[in-house]
Design a protein around this nucleic acid. Structure first.
Lengths: 110, 110
DNA sequence: TCTACTTATCGTAATATTGCAATGAATTAA
DNA sequence: TTAATTCATTGCAATATTACGATAAGTAGA
């Protein structure tokens, strides 16, 4: 037990939860905000800016990259990461649709 | 060690990740969508609609309730759950601000 | 009262996540 | 080539999450 039963849910429900999982850790939220704020690629200064070990940051970056929300480019000995805008927009539309469901609601019942 | 170091992040970053955690499981996404779609309180039919054990659903409901996204009212032997609209709106504004950060971006760098 | 029904909680097992030290791989500069 | 730098990966250890059976707690009706 302890395994999420994705089979019994719709693709849309699994998508929402997968994206949400990306934001479900403050380090990943912080990484994404840094990438947005600098409006430019940033490398391993993230390790300094955020107070976590290099291995940990690298792991979080990998997760965000696997999800497609960021992309990385090797620049010499450093690696430059930035937001993958196209995929960010796709994610945003999935999440926004989920979040704005309440607009269908007429009124509360209890 | 396995413990999230919330101390080193801002309140906003912790808030985003806490809300995201609520949506980070398809069962909770499904529960919320059911509550929205029925536009009415719903009780333990969730157990039938979603294919998980009663104890598991109850646990997910508790998490959503603790976060304030839903509220429950006892009605006889049943319990009626529905969306907590005010808190949903608060959550929505926090998440929307996070998701629309990309509008500040001028262009991609890599 | 007793029984049936519904939901919450407890206990436990399985799996996932987080974090870091150590190490590996790749590049640059000397 | 060698040393330094940067980042990825590996291999733990600790904690969190998910799931469910069993059981408790509560209400409604006979």
């Amino acid at each position: 037990m302890g395994v999420t039963k994705s089979e019994i849910f719709t693709d849309q429900q699994n998508q929402v939860s997968t994206f949400a999982k990306a934001f479900a850790h403050p380090a990943r939220v912080a990484i994404l905000e840094h990438l947005f704020n600098l409006n430019a690629c940033i490398c391993g200064d993230l390790v300094e800016e955020i107070g976590l070990a290099q291995a940990t940051i690298s792991q979080h970056l990998k997760e965000l990259k696997n999800l497609g929300l960021i992309k990385g480019e090797v620049e010499g000995t450093k690696v430059c990461y930035c937001i993958h805008q196209e995929n960010w927009n796709k994610m945003k539309s999935v999440m926004t649709e989920f979040l704005t469901q309440d607009e269908k609601l007429k009124g509360s019942c209890c």
